[in-house]
């Protein structure tokens, strides 16, 4: 393949990875606007350093590394996590309200937002994005064992959060106080 065709393919692949980058960024920072800024920052960095990418290796993993580094750099600067208390993951869900399990999904997104960033990152990379532990470790810049440990801790913490006493009921949940609790129990058993 010629250099120009290769560049074109690489750029097409980069554009194709944008939805994944956005989903990962929203999951990481819990704020859609900030996530879009992070994606733009990562895209510009990637674009300006495309010559540093080794063709034939994992482009998505490379992009995710740039993205998460931008996020954690900012996190270290601000020393606080900018988070939407309800979680943007919940806001983006398009599951109809009448569909069974909707409240479970909201609970899940709230629980996710309460995880430490490193555990949330590991869980999203491996459990949602489908990266291998090895790729997730390369992206996060840590050992494979660390990723496994973070995933396990995230899973345990999620389980605890999902089985904890429900928050102040509201809306449909208030009208059916037993419903969410029952569904929560089903989720806990399934995990």
């Amino acid at each position: 393949m010629s250099g120009r065709a290769q560049d074109s393919t690489l750029r097409d692949d980069l554009v194709a990875a944008i939805p994944n980058m956005r989903a990962f960024a929203i999951s990481l920072c819990g704020n859609r606007d900030r996530a879009d800024d992070l994606v733009q920052e990562a895209l510009v960095k990637a674009w300006n350093h495309l010559d540093s990418f080794e063709v034939g290796t994992n482009l998505k993993a490379w992009l995710f590394t740039i993205l998460r580094n931008a996020y954690f750099s900012e996190l270290r600067k601000t020393k606080r996590e900018i988070a939407d208390s309800e979680g943007q993951l919940a806001a983006r869900l398009s599951v109809p309200a009448e569909q069974q399990g909707h409240l479970d999904l909201l609970d899940l997104s709230r629980a996710l937002s309460k995880l430490p960033p490193d555990q949330r990152e590991a869980l999203i990379l491996v459990g949602a994005e489908g990266f291998s532990y090895e790729d997730a470790a390369a992206i996060s810049g840590c050992a494979v064992g660390t990723v496994k440990s973070r995933v396990n801790r995230a899973r345990s913490r999620l389980n605890e959060l999902m089985t904890a006493a429900p928050a102040e009921p509201s809306g449909a949940a208030a009208a059916d106080p037993d419903g969410p609790a029952r569904r929560r129990s089903r989720t806990a058993r399934a995990v």
Partner: peptide, 14 residues
């Protein structure tokens, strides 16, 4: 890695 309902929910949300 997250089996059962919780794993399905996570993947559905993502």
């Amino acid at each position: 890695v997250l089996p059962g309902i919780l794993g399905k929910q996570l993947r559905a949300a993502y």
